[in-house]
């Protein structure tokens, strides 16, 4: 587990909570854990974000959305992308996990269970539709870089699973 302090100014947090990942609109970037710091420096709001996956095309949009949201709230903003420490699914908040499940994306399991699930050794990923654990992986790679594709053997629904990354 990576312990890394996040510094987010109380003044900026409610504004950043309104910005979401364009590919998972129900999840705020705070709950996704990509905002690593948000602080004022000489009157400018300096935001540091880290990508979930290196090639995540959402990062550019997220950067623009942050600037737009802050500008609307009357702040000048500067957004930097940082790579270290590398993002981990452990940084998704409890609220974020719930939002994912409600949206129809199974939240990431802890590492060892994730590996077994993706290797098809155990059935531990719960169907987001009927909650059955009688599910199977269709593809390790899903609709976006961060997801794997699953299907439910009971209700037959396909669904996304947010892959564990630690």
């Amino acid at each position: 587990m990576i312990e890394e302090k996040v510094h987010i100014s109380e003044e900026l947090e409610p504004i950043l909570k309104q910005v979401s990942d364009p590919e998972i609109p129900v999840l705020s970037i705070i709950d996704l854990g990509v905002v690593r710091s948000a602080e004022f420096n000489n009157g400018i709001a300096e935001i540091k974000i880290t990508p979930t996956y290196s090639g995540c095309p959402a990062m550019d949009v997220i950067g623009d959305d942050i600037k737009a949201a802050l500008l609307e709230a009357g702040y000048k903003a500067k957004v930097d992308l940082i790579l270290s420490p590398a993002w981990s699914t452990d940084w998704i908040t409890e609220e974020g996990r719930q939002a994912l499940e409600d949206y129809g994306i199974a939240a990431p399991l802890e590492a060892s269970a994730d590996k077994k699930a993706l290797l098809g050794e155990t059935q531990v990923v719960k169907c987001t539709n009927c909650k059955s654990k009688n599910t199977q992986m269709v593809s390790q790679f899903g609709s976006t870089a961060c997801k794997a594709l699953f299907k439910c053997n009971d209700c037959q629904e396909p669904f996304d699973y947010f892959k564990c990354l630690i």
Binding site: P51, Y53, S54, G55, C56, P57, F141, G142, T144, A145
Partner: peptide
């Protein structure tokens, strides 16, 4: 997806 990961790293 793998291609996208690689391009991300390349950037």
């Amino acid at each position: 997806n793998i291609s996208l990961d690689l391009f991300g790293q390349v950037r």
